[in-house]
Nucleic acid binder design. Structure first.
Lengths: 109, 109
DNA sequence: CGCATACATCGACGATTGTCAATGTCCGGT
DNA sequence: ACCGGACATTGACAATCGTCGATGTATGCG
């Protein structure tokens, strides 16, 4: 999860930086960015692997691998229903990431 | 630069995904996240390499390399003054990145 | 000029990554 | 019980990455 105050506020310590970097690294790949986007924009906010493989133009194992990376990063949920695995985004995860990038000045009391 | 509508709005095409992913990949590294953070939080909003090497705990060539990656990603400015190279963040770059992560619903007119 | 300092570049290394074909696992239908 | 379909896992490969020491470049000072 995102854990800390905005980047520009105060220097990140090593452990915070490592945990935040893990998430950014997860979305630092074109295929995974597109997967995230395709899942979010899909009807119902969820999609199964078979709906993602062909428009992405990658093999099924590769798509499964990328989805696993996104789940491990806390960006996607995975729900198995019958034979299908449905993936949906974790909205507050993206919000938390955006908060780390926030450049607002701290309120001066 | 960030180029496009929020991730969750509509599926990214391949070229947009590639250009956005390049920037996220740049900050998908603990050392570079800390550099970004240290530069932003430094007095005057800028810092030279010699001020970053020791607190980061990495060699000077490595720090220079990471800074170059951040500059190439459009996240840092580099300004040479005398013998020193001062780096400062490009604020609108972080804002643009955060906009890509925005999860707000589109306004329904 | 000559030297020290600040930084970049180069070359090399082990480690990680993205991708695929092949195979394994599990579920639902016949 | 069998088979087919959906997905995950494995193993392998080239490519990229992070890091360092060594070296190059350029600036300022004596």
């Amino acid at each position: 999860m995102a854990c800390c105050s905005p980047l520009v506020r105060e220097p990140l310590d090593a452990t915070s930086a490592a945990s935040v970097a893990r998430v950014f690294k997860a979305i630092g790949d074109p295929a995974r960015l597109r997967l995230l986007s395709m899942v979010a924009a899909h009807e119902g906010g969820e999609a199964c692997v078979c709906e993602l493989t062909e428009p992405l133009g990658l093999s099924q194992p590769t798509v499964s691998h990328h989805l696993k990376v996104l789940v491990d990063a806390g960006l996607l949920n995975r729900e198995q229903r019958g034979v299908w695995a449905y993936y949906s985004i974790v909205p507050q995860a993206l919000d938390a990431l955006a908060a780390v990038l926030d450049t607002r000045q701290p309120v001066t009391p």
